[in-house]
């Protein structure tokens, strides 16, 4: 696929406030590949939190703001499969039968998840400048299922010569984030997060990498806190000094290929 010189970047609300370094790394990666990266300041949130809670009207109002913010015919790159899935898969449903349906389809057709764009469209390849490192890759459910792009993250990491990449036991299983699910069903969510965190710890990797900051927020918070008794395989509240550092894949790619 030929890539266009100009791309939009949709940073996501979570990255905006909690993980801006991940968004910045992603934009730097893209700029280094010769793209003109446009970050419209009018962007806010894809609307998924309200949408998944059933507040369709609120979700539509916020989504409409994004429709207005990315008008030109450029690809829209999103460093989160979850938000990308919302815009690409769910917007057409959210706006079906409304006056904005056509705009929603126009936007949806241009949305790409970041790792998928890097791996398939840009065929991103850079020499690995970092030392040997074992990383554990967590695939988000949105990447795996809704967007079907989870192979891209693994591909990109495989292109870094000094990385050893492993996946946790039960790698297909959700980490328990699920947006508002983590707040509405905190005990179930915590049990899922604890199991996932235990599986991640068991790999012995020093870095946990993923393409969705929701999962990373959940798993990072759980790893830092220590696993609770609700996790079947974990002991109560023992923060592990060996717990991996949590990184968005864009940060890892940038760090390891960027000569300061």
């Amino acid at each position: 696929m030929p890539h266009s010189a100009r791309v939009y970047f949709f940073g996501t609300c979570l990255i905006d406030l909690i993980f801006p370094q991940a968004g910045l790394a992603a934009m730097r990666l893209l700029r280094r590949e010769g793209l003109e990266v446009i970050f419209p300041q009018g962007q806010t949130c894809c609307g998924q939190p309200a949408y998944n809670s059933g507040y369709d009207a609120a979700a539509r109002a916020v989504a409409r703001q994004q429709l207005a913010t990315f008008p030109e015919d450029y690809p829209i790159l999103v460093p989160s499969a979850s938000c990308a899935g919302m815009m690409k898969v769910q917007y057409p449903k959210l706006f079906a039968g409304t006056a904005d349906e056509e705009r929603a389809l126009h936007l949806a057709a241009r949305v790409h998840e970041l790792t998928d764009y890097l791996a398939r469209v840009l065929d991103w390849r850079r020499p690995d400048l970092g030392p040997p490192l074992k990383v554990v890759l967590h695939h988000s459910c949105s990447a795996r299922r809704e967007m079907g792009v989870s192979g891209a993250a693994a591909d990109l990491l495989a292109r870094l010569a000094n990385l050893e990449v492993v996946e946790p036991d039960h790698t297909h299983e959700c980490c328990g984030f699920g947006g508002t699910f983590a707040v509405k069903q905190p005990e179930i969510s915590a049990a899922m997060a604890a199991d996932k965190a235990a599986a991640i710890l068991a790999t012995g990797a020093r870095v946990l990498v993923g393409q969705d900051c929701g999962c990373l927020l959940n798993l990072g918070g759980t790893l830092a806190y220590g696993l609770t008794a609700k996790g079947l395989t974990a002991s109560p509240r023992t923060p592990d000094p060996q717990a991996p550092v949590v990184k968005h894949i864009a940060e890892l790619l940038w760090e390891r290929t960027h000569a300061p």
């Binding site: 940073g11 905006d16 801006p20 968004g23 970050f39 905190p186 997060a193 759980t222 830092a224 609770t228």
Partner: peptide, 15 residues
Amino acid sequence: TRTPPVIAPRSLHEL
């Protein structure tokens, strides 16, 4: 069950 996240000093909009 989780250590709460910390808001970044600058948003991605600003960066």
